[in-house]
């Protein structure tokens, strides 16, 4: 065993000890803390019923055919013509945000909800009526603390309580 190799072994073990006793931690304590994502994060999509002009551009641009135009029965009967409104299907949605970016009236908006899971297949499909009720809220055992990720020169990522 040559000397330089021994030195390298020692260096590796010492570096390990350094991190064992004085290393930073990057962990976000997820169910207790949730990260407040930056402005414009492409999370789940919310839909504004009133400002929608039913142009169906969102359904046309959707790469996964998750956005679909549903015939709105009440409105069709009231207005005497076929009225279609968008509904979203999270079983297919890939969160590319094309529908939001193409919407000419900003009826579709990004939210920062990003941590939802479902028990069943059916509850992931949102026809227009449910779609306009807002995004689902993930199940939290306790009310989580909102934190902001701060990029740090020495520790990588730190988490600070979000101001808002």
């Amino acid at each position: 065993m040559s000397l330089s190799r021994t030195v390298r072994h020692a260096k590796a073990i010492l570096t390990g000890f350094k991190y064992l006793f004085a290393g930073p931690r990057l962990t976000l304590m997820y169910p207790d803390d949730i990260q407040e994502l930056p402005e414009g994060y492409r999370g789940m999509i919310e839909y504004d019923w009133d400002s929608c002009i039913k142009c169906s551009l969102c359904a046309m641009v959707c790469p996964a055919d998750a956005m679909k135009m549903y015939v709105s029965k009440e409105e069709s009967e009231r207005e005497g013509k076929v009225v279609k409104r968008p509904g979203i299907n999270y079983t297919r949605c890939i969160f590319c945000g094309f529908c939001v970016d193409i919407c000419p009236t900003d009826s579709l908006r990004f939210t920062k909800v990003h941590d939802v899971a479902y028990y069943t297949y059916e509850e992931q499909i949102y026809p227009p009526a449910e779609f306009s009720k807002g995004v689902p809220r993930p199940l939290y055992l306790r009310e989580p603390r909102k934190v902001r990720a701060v990029l740090d020169e020495r520790r990588g990522i730190r988490y600070e309580p979000a101001r808002s």
């Binding site: 390990g16 991190y19 064992l20 290393g23 930073p24 931690r25 990057l26 962990t27 990588g156």
Partner: peptide
């Protein structure tokens, strides 16, 4: 735990 501490986590 030891591995986790060296590996920047809990």
């Amino acid at each position: 735990k030891i591995a986790a501490k060296v590996q920047l986590r809990y």
